[in-house]
Amino acid sequence: EEEEKKKEEIARLLGVSKEDVERILKKNNLDIEQLLRRVQREN
């Protein structure tokens, strides 16, 4: 699934687990696209 791939990509870029990414998304109330763009910009 596309969303899972995005979570895995974010996890890889941040050096965290996919579960961490899911927690970040919930905690910050971000959607996956916003987080992915933010992470890609910083790297």
Score class of each variant (00 low, 15 high):
29 N>Y: 05
43 N>S: 13
31 D>M: 05
42 E>M: 08
13 L>A: 05
35 L>T: 02
38 R>F: 15
27 K>H: 12
37 R>V: 08
20 D>N: 06
28 N>R: 10
27 K>G: 07
11 A>C: 08
22 E>G: 04
31 D>S: 15
9 E>Y: 15
36 L>T: 02
26 K>S: 10
16 V>Q: 03
5 K>P: 04
10 I>S: 01
41 R>I: 09
35 L>P: 00
34 Q>L: 06
35 L>V: 03
20 D>W: 14
14 L>G: 00
37 R>N: 12
2 E>F: 07
42 E>G: 09
5 K>V: 10
39 V>L: 15
21 V>L: 05
43 N>D: 09
38 R>A: 14
15 G>D: 03
31 D>L: 05
40 Q>P: 02
30 L>I: 12
19 E>L: 11
39 V>Q: 02
25 L>A: 07
41 R>N: 12
1 E>Y: 13
3 E>T: 12
26 K>P: 00
6 K>N: 06
26 K>E: 11
21 V>H: 00
31 D>I: 03
20 D>A: 13
25 L>H: 01
8 E>W: 13
15 G>S: 05
13 L>H: 05
7 K>G: 01
21 V>T: 01
4 E>P: 02
20 D>P: 00
30 L>G: 05
8 E>D: 10
39 V>M: 08
29 N>M: 07
37 R>Q: 14
13 L>C: 05
26 K>H: 09
43 N>I: 15
1 E>C: 09
10 I>P: 00
19 E>V: 09
39 V>E: 02
29 N>H: 11
28 N>G: 11
24 I>K: 02
4 E>I: 07
28 N>P: 03
41 R>H: 11
15 G>R: 08
25 L>I: 08
31 D>Q: 07
25 L>D: 00
16 V>E: 01
21 V>E: 00
10 I>T: 04
27 K>R: 14
20 D>I: 14
6 K>F: 08
39 V>H: 04
40 Q>R: 14
24 I>N: 01
10 I>Q: 00
2 E>D: 12
43 N>M: 15
20 D>H: 11
34 Q>D: 13
31 D>E: 07
14 L>A: 01
40 Q>M: 11
16 V>S: 03
22 E>C: 10
6 K>Y: 08
10 I>G: 01
27 K>S: 12
41 R>P: 05
19 E>A: 13
14 L>W: 04
24 I>D: 01
37 R>K: 13
4 E>H: 06
23 R>C: 06
33 E>S: 06
14 L>Y: 02
30 L>Y: 09
37 R>G: 07
18 K>G: 03
23 R>I: 11
15 G>H: 07
29 N>W: 04
17 S>H: 07
35 L>G: 00
43 N>Y: 12
28 N>V: 09
34 Q>I: 08
4 E>G: 06
38 R>V: 13
13 L>T: 03
23 R>T: 10
3 E>P: 07
22 E>V: 07
31 D>F: 03
11 A>T: 02
3 E>K: 10
14 L>I: 04
30 L>A: 04
4 E>A: 09
14 L>R: 01
42 E>F: 06
4 E>K: 07
40 Q>F: 03
38 R>E: 15
35 L>W: 05
10 I>K: 00
32 I>Q: 01
25 L>M: 12
30 L>C: 06
32 I>E: 03
36 L>G: 01
35 L>R: 00
7 K>Y: 07
23 R>Q: 13
38 R>T: 11
22 E>P: 02
4 E>N: 09
17 S>P: 05
7 K>S: 02
10 I>H: 00
5 K>A: 14
23 R>D: 11
31 D>A: 07
33 E>P: 02
18 K>N: 04
14 L>T: 01
10 I>F: 03
3 E>W: 08
13 L>M: 09
33 E>H: 09
34 Q>N: 07
37 R>W: 04
11 A>Q: 03
36 L>I: 04
33 E>C: 12
18 K>Y: 06
22 E>Y: 03
27 K>E: 15
33 E>I: 04
19 E>H: 09
21 V>F: 02
9 E>K: 10
12 R>T: 06
29 N>L: 06
29 N>S: 08
4 E>R: 07
20 D>L: 10
20 D>Q: 13
10 I>V: 14
9 E>H: 11
9 E>A: 10
33 E>V: 04
29 N>D: 08
36 L>E: 03
36 L>C: 04
9 E>C: 12
17 S>V: 03
9 E>M: 15
28 N>A: 13
37 R>E: 15
34 Q>W: 09
42 E>S: 09
34 Q>F: 06
22 E>R: 03
41 R>Y: 08
4 E>F: 05
31 D>H: 05
29 N>R: 12
39 V>S: 06
15 G>Q: 06
4 E>M: 08
8 E>M: 14
38 R>D: 15
34 Q>M: 08
42 E>H: 13
24 I>C: 12
19 E>R: 11
42 E>Q: 12
25 L>Y: 02
26 K>F: 09
5 K>R: 14
12 R>P: 00
32 I>P: 13
9 E>R: 09
24 I>Q: 03
28 N>F: 15
19 E>C: 11
43 N>T: 13
34 Q>H: 06
16 V>T: 06
38 R>L: 15
35 L>I: 03
38 R>C: 08
1 E>K: 12
40 Q>Y: 05
37 R>C: 14
28 N>T: 15
27 K>D: 14
43 N>A: 14
18 K>E: 03
5 K>W: 14
7 K>Q: 03
33 E>K: 04
3 E>G: 09
11 A>D: 00
1 E>R: 12
30 L>Q: 05
13 L>P: 00
1 E>N: 13
6 K>V: 11
21 V>A: 01
9 E>L: 15
18 K>L: 11
40 Q>C: 12
18 K>R: 10
20 D>C: 11
17 S>I: 03
38 R>Q: 15
14 L>E: 00
11 A>I: 02
2 E>K: 08
7 K>A: 04
19 E>M: 11
22 E>N: 11
32 I>C: 08
9 E>F: 15
32 I>F: 04
3 E>I: 14
21 V>N: 00
18 K>C: 08
27 K>N: 13
12 R>C: 11
